[in-house]
Every structure is written in structure tokens, then in C-alpha cells.
Design a protein around this nucleic acid. Sequence first.
DNA 1: TTTTGGCACTCGTGTGTTCAGAGTGCCAAA
DNA 2: TTTGGCACTCTGAACACACGAGTGCCAAAA
Lengths: 344, 344
Amino acid sequence: MAGEVRQLDERKLAVLRAIVQDYVGTEEPVGSKALVERHNLGVSPATVRNDMAALEEEGYIHQPHTSAGRIPTDKGYRLFVDKLAEIKPMSAPERRAIRHFLDGAVDLDDVVARTVRLLAQLTRQVAVVQYPSLTRSTVRHIELVALAPAKVMLVLITNTGRVEQRMVDCPGTVGETVLADLRTALNTGAAGRRLPEVPGVLEELPAMFEPADRPTVSTVLATLFETLAEQNEERIMLAGTANLTRFGHDFPLTIQPVLEALEEQVILLRLLGETNDAAMTVRIGRENAYEGLNSTSVVSVGYGSGDESVAKLGVIGPTRMDYPGTMGAVRAVARYVGQILAES
Amino acid sequence: MAGEVRQLDERKLAVLRAIVQDYVGTEEPVGSKALVERHNLGVSPATVRNDMAALEEEGYIHQPHTSAGRIPTDKGYRLFVDKLAEIKPMSAPERRAIRHFLDGAVDLDDVVARTVRLLAQLTRQVAVVQYPSLTRSTVRHIELVALAPAKVMLVLITNTGRVEQRMVDCPGTVGETVLADLRTALNTGAAGRRLPEVPGVLEELPAMFEPADRPTVSTVLATLFETLAEQNEERIMLAGTANLTRFGHDFPLTIQPVLEALEEQVILLRLLGETNDAAMTVRIGRENAYEGLNSTSVVSVGYGSGDESVAKLGVIGPTRMDYPGTMGAVRAVARYVGQILAES
DNA sequence: TTTTGGCACTCGTGTGTTCAGAGTGCCAAA
DNA sequence: TTTGGCACTCTGAACACACGAGTGCCAAAA
């Protein structure tokens, strides 16, 4: 079907573009007369009305009620984003401000915290930043510390400097020699490996210990594997929820499911998970799988040091948002965070 | 002045109590007639009206407009909380549910995460939990791990299960024996001590090593002390923001500053900081220093393993909240978290 | 075939009015 | 000190109504 846009000539597209722009600005249904006044379309309101009728026929816009102006539908925004708008580049001062703000960060936590705040401020919407993924990082060291006769603390250190610790309750008293052997074995086997590879490598480990010690070894291993797996279950940082108050008139109804979604890291992760690594992804309204976000749009993109993306970030706002500006901000921030990560 | 309550006899207090209870339930100004119907006060509406006039005179209640019912003022709630209400104990099933929910936690992060969610659910309000503070906890173990010839990772484990790690760049290559000696010395000296005491105890440590090793020892010590001192690492976890949507009619106006406050960890920390360690603290409306929270109340209390409090937790909700219930939930949760921490 | 002006029509919004009901304050009697 | 009665106040819901923005359609112009 080459016909997606078959009935829409250049001018109808211009009308749709104008409608989107006006509606995003005013938050009110836009009529034919206002449209020709604010944009110099060079035609009369009547002509615009005809075009609008066609656009409505095709499902790009709709009327809240007879005798009201038009509002873009999700499909209309989609066409706008895909064909009618260009990502708006940040101005030089803006770029400088971004750079300056992010440069002050002292560690990874700080980078993420600053990024998410910055993004929320720039877009005046809710910002979401995923911590850099650790699937690609490697094991630097595994440490075991006896805290009590049958209690061991497991510490996992990755090459990115991240440390994860877990308490392990062992089935019986753990001897110091066993612990030392196990520590050595773990490090010999796992050090330098990527996290997901480790379970495969250490699978046979219990068999190499005395039968009496095997339960302990297995327990520790199980906890280690769990910890490794949890690295995939990434963390997320959030900012700008107060911007939700600018959402609209039918306020509590819209905002509640959104707030609920924002509290569920799982939902946010799934949301970002749908992001196409390379390109910027825009999910508009009902395109979002989670129905609480059916009247919001999500603009997200991967970021990372070098050319491979290690995590994702994005913005959540009303479908009625300034797409070019938001996309510009998201892209710029992602780019700079990537640079910062590459430098450190 | 013994006269705070001088003009208020027993019945007037009962009327105030009834007003608070009804208003919290219905969210609507409560009138004299409804009051005698719902509570068996044994007097006529006219009498209640007289009492109400007195209560209003004293500033405990007020009328939104003539010919409307009464609403408690902050001062009214204060009196209610201080003199008229008892903390409502959790029911046995509730206690069991709390216990069960918290028992599933696997590590400190999980304990905090579960606690905050639980509290939000129980009170149907916004819950805030501060991570166990480093200042009051004690050292359980200090671990040193050689990562590279001149690079050591320092891991500090506290009795509350919190783990802090730092990279240490040493002035020269660090021998394994020195590291082992240092590890032993550190643990011997510091284990079981409160964090702020540790620097005093270990001050003389470098002198006990070979002159050649002293720079290394000093560097490690410096990093350790830094870590100990960094108590501004006070983190906070939040849940239940979606409950804000049940706030009231004049919605966006009230909710926005609250959302803003919730995003500022500094504000939240200050808020919890005002909590009286031992007893439960209730800040009502304008009693809150931060003016964005002027129409909310904060119920908070310290929690910890044993009898000393290591951190604080609480709930933020509208001044028109169920104080006895909320206080009961907060107290119960704090108690159980304390137990969990003591056990682990 | 497309554009345009004209025109009748629709419908939401804002304004003004009315009305019932809840609640009060005050007063005189119990 | 309490109570019943009464006049008064004020909100909020219901209703009517006019305004105006906006539409769809049609016939004429380009």
C-alpha cells in the first residue's frame, strides 16, 4: 500500500502541520479561520475546511464535538513526527549549558542524577534515565567475607567500579579454608569475564569440592548467579514529576495512572526497552503498551560511550507535546551523556 | 498559662473530636445537626452550636463561609492529636501481613524498598523512608581488595547491612602481606565501633607499619575516613505519590508544590531531620518549615535495631488525614523494620 | 476540477436567575 | 445552662438564554 498518504497533497499536510503546531501551543481545538490567520497558507478558510474534512476522513484529526475546532489524533501526531517535522537542534547556548551542567558530575550516580534533572528541566516534562547497563561489563573481583559462622557476605566488583553485595545464609558452618578456596576458585574462573558468561563457567564448581562442602558452595553460587542476573534488571532514575501538573484540565483522571506507572520500575523499564537502540523512538498515545500511558507520549533514545548504546533515556509527556523540541533535547542530552561516559 | 484549654470543658472537646473524625471521613464541612445525628452526644444541635462558637472563638475550627459547617484548623488538629486521640493499634491480621511482607526482603535495599511500599499501601499516602544512617551504625567489617598493583578497593560493611565502597589509588605498588596486615589491623581496631569513633581509634596506625609502607597506609586510611565522614550520603526512598491524586478538589494548586518537595531529597531529609528520635512526631500544616507542605501533615518516627534509632521514616498526607490510623501504621512499620534490621 | 464566499445550522460556554437546603446566630423559654 | 424556634445567609444545582466560534454544504468563480 503506497496509499497511506495517497489522498493528502502538499497543502493538506501543511494544514495538518499547522493544526498540530497550533494545538500544541494553545491547548485548544483549532478552527479553520484561526488557522489561515496565524499561518499564511494563501488560501481561504473554506478551502482549509475542505482539507480538514479530508484529514478527518483519514483519521488524522477529529472534532471533540460538532462546531468545535479540530484536534490531532494519535495517528495525526504520528504522521507529523514521521513526515512533517524536523528534530529541532539545540541552540548554541543551550548546548553549552548542557555541557557545563553535565561536566560537573563526580561519579556515575551523579551523572545519572544530573542527566535526569537536566532533561526534565529542558523539556519541562517527566524525564527517565536508565543506569548504564552492566551486561557488557566484566567481573573484576569476587570477595567473600565471613560475618558469622553460617553467614557470608558476597561482594561482586565489576570493571565499571560498581559493587553489588549480598548476604548468604549457608546451610552449615563455613570453614575459613573452604571460604578461601572458594574465593580463589571464583576469581580464577570469573575474573575478566562478562557477567552473563559467568554462570556457564562456574557451573561445575561444586563438583570440585569435598562432598561435605558442596551445599555451601552451591548456596554461594546460587546467590552469585542471582546477583549477576539482577544486573540485567536495571535501575532507573526519575525527575520532573511536578511537571505533570501542567498536563491538562481533566487532571486527576489523567495524572493518576501516570503516577502509578512512574512508580513501577518494571513498567518504565519495559517502556524504555521498546526503544530502538540506534534511532530515536517516539511512542504516541495508544501506541504505548501500558494503558495508563495511553494519553502520553514517550520519546526515548539509547545512549552510550562510543557507538554502542549502554542504556536508554527519555521523556514522558502529554501526547500534545512539542515533539521537535523534545526530540532535540533528548537527542542532545543523550549525545552529551555519551561523551561524558566515554571520557571517564 | 494553664489556660490553653481553659474554656473547653469535656463536652466541647468531644465536639471537636467528633468534628475532626467526621471531617476526615467526609471531607466536607460538618454542621451541628449532622454531628448530633452521627455521634450520640446526648445534647441538641443548638447546644453543639454554642460549643462550636466557643471552639471557633479559640481558633480550633473555622467556617469556610457563613452558613457552612466547620472545618478543623491546624490548631484543632494539633489538639486532637495531642489530647483527644489515641494511636490506633494495628489489628492482628495487619501485623501479620506487615511481618510477612517485610520478612521476604533479601538485602538492605530490599528492606527499604519493601518498607516504603508497605507504608504507602497501609496509609494510602506518600511514604518516605530514610536509609539507615552511617553515623549511628557500627563497623562490621572492612575489606581490602587489590585490583591492580597500585589500586585497592576499600569496602566498608556496617551492622545495618549497608555497604560502601571506594577506589583507592595508592602511591606505589601494594604488597599482599601489607594489605593483609592492614586488613587485620583495620578490623581489629574498628570492628564494632561506631563510625564517627573510628578515625580516633585508627589515628596512630601508620606509625605501626614499616616506613616504606606508611604512605600506602595513610592513603587507605584517608579514604576510609572520607567514607565515614560522608554522611551526606543520606539517601531516601519514596512511594505512593499516586495517592496524592486523592488530595482534594483544588487539586493542581495543592499538589504541585508537594511534588516539587518530594523531588528534593534535601527537603525530605530536613523534614525527617526534625523528627524527634524517640517519640513519634506529627507536623501539621503550617507547622512544617517548608511552605510547599503547608497544607500537608507529616507523621514520622525513628527506627532502628535495638533501642537506638538509626534512621527515620514517615508519611506525608493532607492535614485532613486519619491521624490515629496513620500513626498506628507508622509506628507498627517502624517497629518491624527495627526487628528485621536487628535480626540480619 | 479546485477554490471561494455565503449561509444556515449546531453546540459549547458563559451569564443571569431562581430555588431548595443546609447551616448559622440569636433570643426567649425551660 | 440547655433547648426550641425563627429569621437570615450563602452555596450549589438547575434552568434559560444569548453569543459566537466553527462547521458543512452549495453554487458560483477561477
